[in-house]
């Protein structure tokens, strides 16, 4: 099977979630036979291509039209390259970038797409894919009809691919200018600066919920504990809706779906939509004043009490015990 992986990047290097998508692709190629190639899209992305080449051969489409992530040209470039090169499987990370552009490309390629793949198996030559449904309450095992098959892959379900130890080739593609047509324009990105790691990349995630009354308290307790453990700060939807935490911290069905080594839920009741975003974490710790809170049903360790009292004590004792994880 000829497989291409869309490489998401930050302008310098490939993002971790794409390395998980690459690991999925390599595993499929190992089982089915075939090869895996990166597709790097952007403008002035030589360093990204070099980074990607540590893992697998690279195709690069470099154009000023790809400077900002707009679905129309990105999708057309992907579908054009897939058709020209005869790729049979297209994989990408389950990020907002890929969820925007990859389905659009998939429709240009016949519509055989599965989102958020968490497991795969080759059975009688057919690729069976597990995809979560109903906020993860149910998993459907599906087979896609038609070729190419297009998938997004959950980063939390596949360990990142490792460099292969050699430097692979980088091939630059020249495409017809019509492929880059774009009717929309990009007006910018507003992000709250965050010195901590992203929740999708951290080994430890500390999340806060409704118990926190304002942004200062959230920063002091959730941010403080995250810093004490060298982890990321996350949040439930309630705090994002209340303007207490920024959108990009939201963990849940409609936010980010993560599976860190340790997830610490502070003052989060545990609505099914939140559980969908974190329940595959390796160890789950819950602190909540309500002993009946559903978060305790999915927790390995539960502590009943007021987060405003428990968190400062926890931070202080962790720091004096030097419990921490490297990032």
């Amino acid at each position: 099977m000829r497989i291409v992986v869309v490489a998401e990047h930050d302008g310098t290097a490939v993002r971790g979630a794409s390395l998980s998508a690459l690991a999925f692709a390599q595993s499929v190629a190992a089982a089915a036979g075939g090869d895996v190639t990166w597709l790097v899209l952007g403008h002035q992305v030589d360093s990204v291509a070099q980074d990607a080449a540590r893992f697998a051969p690279v195709l690069v489409v470099d154009s000023p039209a790809l400077e900002n992530p707009i679905a129309e040209p990105f999708a057309r470039v992907i579908s054009t390259v897939v058709k020209e090169r005869g790729f049979e499987l297209v994989a990408a990370a389950s990020s907002t970038f890929a969820k925007d552009i990859v389905p659009r490309a998939a429709a240009q390629l016949g519509g055989a797409m599965a989102s958020d793949v968490v497991r795969h198996e080759l059975v009688d030559g057919r690729l069976q894919l597990d995809t979560p449904r109903y906020a993860g309450a149910v998993t459907a095992t599906v087979v896609l009809q038609g070729s190419p098959q297009i998938v997004t892959v959950r980063g939390s379900a596949y360990a990142a691919a490792q460099p292969s130890g050699e430097t692979h080739g980088v091939e630059r593609l020249e495409l017809d200018s019509a492929v880059f047509n774009c009717r929309g324009s990009y007006e910018g990105l507003k992000s709250k600066q965050n010195a901590r790691p992203d929740v999708t990349e951290a080994r430890v995630v500390v999340s806060g919920g409704r118990a926190f009354k304002n942004a200062e308290d959230f920063e002091q307790h959730v941010g403080g504990l995250a810093d004490a453990l060298g982890g990321a700060a996350g949040s439930s939807r309630a705090l994002v809706d209340a303007g207490i935490a920024p959108n990009e911290l939201q963990v849940g069905q409609t936010g980010k779906i993560i599976a860190p080594e340790v997830y610490i839920a502070l003052g989060i009741s545990g609505a099914v939509q939140h559980l969908a975003g974190m329940k595959n974490s390796r160890t789950i710790v819950a602190v909540n004043s309500d002993p009946e809170a559903p978060i305790f049903d999915v927790a390995d360790y539960g502590l009943v009490g007021d987060v405003y009292k428990i968190t400062p004590e926890l931070i202080e004792k962790l720091e004096s015990h030097a419990v921490g994880l490297s990032r």
């Binding site: 979560p132 993860g136 998993t139 459907a140 599906v142 087979v143 038609g146 390995d300 539960g302 502590l303």
Partner: peptide, 23 residues
Amino acid sequence: PRVEVLRYHSSETVRRGERLRSV
């Protein structure tokens, strides 16, 4: 049809569920 569903299964994870008494 593009997506053939072979089967559904409910997702279950076993947790220790240990209730702690102190920080």
